[in-house]
């Protein structure tokens, strides 16, 4: 009996002290963590919409979406965070698109676990650059091994075809959702 009480008291005390301490720490850390996350998102938005000066979150849609503006508060387009499957895990991206959703301004890969040195090339400048000003109607297409001939095509990376295709897939998927929502008048 005495042991049982001792066991209960010890474990409860340790639990209460730990929990209390962590709660205090968490109240200090949570705002900072939220600020870090916000700064990350903000940085990504201005990377994919280089000419934007301000942005606001679009509230009426079911997914995360940001509308960006120039100096005089004219809407420039959207920044859309979207994710999908890469070669061996989730790829999270930010897609910048013009206000009419026809042209991509830029893309940025936020999180990925692609093969270092091969798949990770999709995060690098030469690949991402292909998306700047790319026509996204009816959808983005890819070609393999030859330079793109149409204005909605990009060339996949040698040795990272699946990762390249995954990026194209995520962009198309995200834009398709956005267009569907716009057609229903949700984002306006």
């Amino acid at each position: 009996m005495k042991t049982i009480v001792a066991m209960l008291v010890t474990l409860s005390l340790i639990g209460v002290v730990s929990g209390g301490g962590l709660a205090m720490l968490s109240s200090w850390a949570d705002p900072l963590i939220a600020a870090n996350k916000k700064a990350d998102t903000e940085r990504a938005i201005f990377l994919v919409q280089p000419s934007a000066k301000s942005y606001e979150k679009v509230e009426k849609v079911a997914f995360e979406l940001y509308r960006v503006f120039d100096e005089t508060k004219n809407p420039l387009g959207y920044a859309l965070p979207w994710e999908g499957n890469g070669f061996q895990g989730k790829v999270r991206m930010m897609v910048g698109v013009s206000a009419d959703l026809n042209t991509i301004t830029a893309i940025e890969v936020l999180d990925q676990v692609e093969t270092p040195g091969l798949g990770t090339k999709v995060t690098e400048e030469p690949f991402r650059k292909q998306f700047q000003g790319l026509v996204a109607v009816p959808q983005v297409d890819w070609v393999k091994g030859v330079p793109p001939t149409k204005e909605n095509e990009i060339q996949t990376i040698t040795g990272a075809t699946i990762s390249s295709k995954a990026i194209v897939g995520i962009v198309n998927d995200g834009l398709a959702h956005l267009r569907k929502d716009m057609a229903q008048g949700g984002a306006q």
């Binding site: 042991t3 639990g15 301490g21 962590l22 200090w28």
Partner: peptide, 28 residues
């Protein structure tokens, strides 16, 4: 003070507390 029957559980709670501290501080 720790009864030997619950020592492993106690150790894990204490270790987890410090790990959470590290995790929160690093993320912040």
């Amino acid at each position: 003070l720790i009864p030997s029957q619950v020592r492993i559980a106690s150790y894990i709670v204490i270790i987890a507390t410090f790990v959470t501290i590290v995790d929160l501080v690093m993320r912040a």
